[in-house]
Design a protein around this nucleic acid. Structure first.
Length: 112
DNA sequence: AGCGTGACGTATA
DNA sequence: TTATACGCCACGC
């Protein structure tokens, strides 16, 4: 409840189950800051090489892998997701609603 | 103490 | 349906 924004983002991302993914906006809304989706992306960018979290499980609101360029190679993110069972095509998650994991439906806001 | 900066999202045309 | 426009705001200079 008192920690900084980045740290709260990392805590939520750490809870995303393998085989699922969520969006920047969904995380921002869950944290009570609906208009801060961009900050979520910025936080994840800075997490590379620091926080040991599954950053590849966060995509944009349409299921597109907009953060792929922040990884070691441009296809690292897609490979990780495919390895976890998601179906992709051109950096776009197919049947997005099937894989979408909403923090608000599985986590308690009071814990963050 | 400003100010530029985005791994976004939504509203328009 | 595909583009472009713009609000957003924590962080680091």
């Amino acid at each position: 409840l008192k920690s900084d924004f980045y740290r709260r983002v990392y805590a939520v991302v750490a809870c995303i189950p393998e085989g699922k993914a969520t969006s920047y906006g969904a995380i921002a809304r869950f944290l009570g800051s609906a208009k801060s989706a961009r900050l979520v992306g910025t936080a994840l960018k800075h997490s590379i090489g620091h926080a040991p979290i599954p950053a590849h499980r966060v995509v944009n609101s349409q299921g597109l892998l907009t953060g792929k360029h922040a990884f070691e190679t441009p296809d690292t993110m897609a490979c990780l997701l495919k390895a976890e069972g998601l179906e992709l095509e051109n950096d776009q998650i197919l049947d997005w609603s099937q894989y979408f994991w909403d923090p608000a439906e599985h986590l308690n806001p009071l814990d963050f």
